[in-house]
Amino acid sequence: MGDGLRVLVHGTGFAGQGHAAAFRAAGAEIVGMVGRTAHVVEEVAGRMGIPHAGTDWAEALEVCKPDVVSVATPGGAHFEPIRQAIAAGAHVFCDKPMTESGETAAELRRLAEEAGVKTCYAASFRYTPSVLHAQRLVADGAIGEPTEVECMSHFNLEREIPFGWSHQKSAGGGRLNNNFTHTLSIVTSVVGEGVREVFGDVRDDLGRAPIVEGVHDFTKRRSFIPKDLDDPSLKWGESDVEWSYTVLARIESALARQPVSVLFKHGGLVPRFGDDHIVFYGTEGAIHLKGHYGSGQLSLHDGSGWTDLPLPDDIAAEVPDVEGETEQCWHRLVRDFTRDIRGEAVAPYPTFREGARYQAIIDVIRASAGWTDVRHLG
């Protein structure tokens, strides 16, 4: 049953289909879908029962007259469709990264604020149940004043993954745009959004990737890795983005008298030895979250030792009934966004304010300029 909210989706892959399902679950009507390739968007829209399918975004805005647009394409393709949607008076749900640069992200934030439309920025792994549990524990003083955070992840991605948007800065690629955005959102959701200073180093340790036709769904790109990488007819694309990064940050927190020190360490192409993890340290204890986005077991150190804690019943009851952590987080965020649009009271969620700040911070990190005050950015 719809509630009057009409949603137009830009993107036909994993994210586009996931966004559409999340908005439907929140009671909205999916009135259209736009993609690059006619036969693909027609197939996906037909399978999902979406009435309008096309390749012209401006036309779809005019025909569908959406209340909300959901942008689920790579970050380098976000600026113009979002600008047009804002001009049409639509609220905007945008997947990360917000755009390919801090400058264009700040421009979209300005346009949205001037137009008075609501925005939502889907750096959404802050909504995993374990992160929500950590947020509650830290707020309740379980570790005293937060002092440090450590985020460690090693993905060991295949170097032969076909060349595409993830290899190109102009397309919104790079590990900062597609990993750091989530971990920064997780950390700030727990200790506070007051990112004060950053210092970073990045490295492109990939170099190149094979060019292969036919890759549509980002999640299935591994199945397109060429069997013969020595084939002389194989063409290669050059990467121009980071595949590993080390970032230090100082975050001002209402929960602590001193800025919280944060380490973000990610190796996209290197193997892990121990578990990926996120740890929040405090003056009286620590919280360990297993997994690169902290979505695994939560353990609390109270000064005497580590204890695995069960998920509180009320947090467990709020987990959307869908498969996949990514999908669950989209559903949770979309639920809050649509409730806010309807005028219901909701907890703060990431908007273009955070998206523009994160994009500006990424620009600073890529510049490797040493410790930089970022309080004025975004």
Rank of each mutant, 00 (worst) to 15 (best):
M1I: 13
G2R: 12
G2W: 12
A15G: 08
G16V: 00
Q17V: 09
H19E: 03
A20D: 00
F23V: 05
R24N: 06
E29P: 08
A38V: 04
V44P: 05
A45I: 04
M48W: 04
H52L: 15
A53V: 04
K65N: 11
G75S: 10
G76K: 03
F79W: 11
Q84A: 09
A87M: 11
A90W: 00
V92N: 01
E107N: 00
A112T: 11
S124C: 11
F125S: 03
V131H: 01
Q135C: 09
V138I: 07
A139H: 10
E145R: 10
P146K: 06
E150C: 01
H167I: 00
Q168C: 14
K169W: 11
G173C: 13
T183P: 10
T188N: 13
S189V: 12
G200A: 02
D201Q: 13
D201K: 15
P210R: 06
P210Y: 01
I211S: 05
G214I: 06
G214S: 01
H216F: 11
K220H: 09
F224T: 00
I225T: 08
D231T: 02
S233Y: 00
L234K: 04
E238V: 12
D240S: 05
I251R: 11
R257Y: 10
P271E: 12
K290I: 14
G303A: 06
D314W: 07
E318M: 13
E318K: 14
V322A: 12
V322E: 12
G324Y: 03
E327C: 02
Q328L: 03
C329K: 02
T338M: 10
T338H: 07
R339T: 03
D340K: 06
D340S: 14
I341V: 14
I341C: 10
R342A: 14
R342Y: 08
P348T: 05
P350T: 03
F352D: 12
R353P: 00
I365M: 07
A369V: 08
R375M: 04
